[in-house]
Nucleic acid binder design. Structure first.
Lengths: 210, 210, 210, 210
DNA sequence: TATGAATGAGTGTTCATTCAT
DNA sequence: GATGAATGAACACTCATTCAT
């Protein structure tokens, strides 16, 4: 269903490729988080991955491939963990639950989200679209969730509002990732979820606050 | 009132410093926007500024100084253009107007906001706080605006909601800057403003949609 | 017995390090002799060593490391070739022989001695002590030789004279290295040795010139 | 009597040239002593001299000119203060006095001597000879002093020994300058003078120790 | 005569990438 | 498949020197 950008490997054994790339992604995430993509060297990535620089290049073609692999893997993880959302029943409660799951997930994957968020734009024009596409897919997921509520008569907002709302939810999730430094002073993740849902929902037409 | 981090210049003439740094900031913004801070070389910055690499270094000490100067200048510009907000009367109308001004401003300063948004984190631990502080000041500006409405009895939301709402407004402004690629497909800036205000306000307790 | 300042290498193979550094030292000595440390570029050192600038930096961390390596190696060589001195029997004849060996050695290692002599002071405060320490060890070597003669009753001079005499011998050796331009007009190395020993010894108390 | 290498100045007023160059030499000596010629920038020299970089270049053509001027001035000073030596009567006592004067002078002019000693070799092939020539003149001064003693019958050593002795005295003077770090642990300048004269003289043929 | 802003060739150093073993 | 030594283009930054004012 979703196309991937193929990253070339010299090695043939697919299992080995998977294994080595997992080592690589794991090592790279913590390095990228600590010092950013540009300040991290391929040598450091190789070392953090537990193999030599030569071996690293058996599984990628360029340093940027590592970033792509990292971003791709993070999105996959996020998508996988969010896939349950689609099971929503089209009730406001299930939409709220979805948002809550999503925000908690972001909190769980702080490092990864931060990395993706801050470094993705370093991807080349070739690789960036693949990542942005995934982002839009996630927005769409929320949009579908919202739309189902509308179709179910639980919400009464127009197409455009639905679309923007989905974006807002998505960005508010990321916001907890990239603005933690400011938000943590005032809110725990639970507070954040409660308050954001308050703010979000009490304004949606047709929803009766009291 | 606000402390600045001093950037060292070898040249003494303050007017000249101002002039050259303006050239520099202008040249750097478009380069940073195009290729990011890390992929931009100091020679390119010098060239885009209209002077030699030697001259560039008469006005800064390190490449990072350029980034700081750029971020600092953008925030100054944004702050200056937002200062009218504080004149708000504590009515919902003036709050909406403030938000609208802010979103339009972001739209105006697309390039600058994008750069600041994406590259600020490349600042060293020494310079970053100065920039983050400015960010918080802007959030506070919105918080005061909101709070005035609450005190005026035009809004009825708690302290925490006020704080988060200010953050949301701030981030939604930035969002127009850093997610234009996705939003522009669906909305013009005017649409965006209208819809976001709808979404924001129609949920605030005590506000009567229609 | 003697501590070394470790110079970091990225390469692990110790034999290779030894080999490459020998190439490096050899290339650097002739460059430093010709144009001095400061006027020699790292690129020139790499080229004279027979490898690329990248490879050079696999075996050192900074340009100064090259100077340290050069100085260290020269002292090692001098020390090695002088170690026979310690075998002296405590006779005036063996002291003279030692001096003669030393002066000839300096003559042999003209370039190296000149370099060390003129460039060592360019070493940082961190590396300089290691080199000065070696210098003092060499002075001590002569002092022991002299002292043995005194204990043997072949010489009758006080502690202080012994100490200064050792310094004088050491410096007179170097003098042949760094003042060759003036001395060569009047003396061959053999002349120099004979005359210096004359001057040195005919003044030592208890030594009977005729 | 002695040729100078002319250093070009754009300014005409000879008195001004003298004044500015004195400022320059004074400033440069302390800088060269502290960080060496190569690590000192022309800007620093200008600043230490009390005028601007532009003014500096009104009185010299290249940075090396400063070094030449410094070396030249130091030798002039040393020569001037040693000129009394020539008044010696051709007695051993006056030779000793001369040596003593010279050693004390070196002690007095520690910084200058050290600078000259360590940096002179950085002079270009064009300027170096002028400095070396001065050095030889000083050696000759000692040689004449010694020779007068020989002619007076107070000493009985051959031409070659006389020549080498003069070199030795000259170098032993410098030695106090450039090896103070080692010698000061054991000797005061007075000790050094006494002991060196002991060592020097008690060996000269025809001189009766006691 | 004095100033100091402007210049740009040159420097030490890094690091992604390759390839022989 | 794995290794790590070798490479050199590229970079940030310096500084001697010039010249318009």
């Amino acid at each position: 269903m979703e196309e991937k950008r193929e990253v070339h490997a010299s090695v043939k054994d697919e299992n080995l490729i998977k294994k080595r790339r997992d080592q690589m992604i794991h090592g790279a995430v913590s390095l990228f988080k600590e010092k950013g993509f540009h300040r991290t060297t391929t040598r450091e990535i190789a070392q953090a991955s537990g193999f030599s620089i030569g071996t690293l290049y058996e599984y990628i073609r360029t340093k940027e491939d590592v970033l792509y692999l990292v971003c791709d893997s993070i999105y996959d993880e996020v998508s996988k963990r969010l896939s349950s959302l689609d099971l929503g029943q089209g009730t406001l409660a299930s939409l709220k639950l979805g948002i809550s799951h999503y925000f908690k997930l972001i909190d769980d994957m702080q490092d990864e989200v931060l990395v993706m968020y801050q470094e993705a734009k370093a991807l080349s024009q070739e690789a960036l679209p693949y990542v942005l596409k995934k982002e839009l897919e996630m927005v769409s997921m929320f949009e579908r969730l919202i739309n189902r509520c509308v179709e179910n008569g639980e919400l009464d907002i127009g197409k455009e509002h639905q679309h923007l709302l989905a974006h807002n939810i998505f960005v508010q999730g990321q916001m907890w990732g990239f603005r933690r430094w400011a938000l943590k002073k005032a809110f725990s993740i639970e507070d954040y979820i409660t308050l954001q849902i308050d703010l979000l929902f009490s304004g949606i037409q047709g929803y009766q606050t009291k």
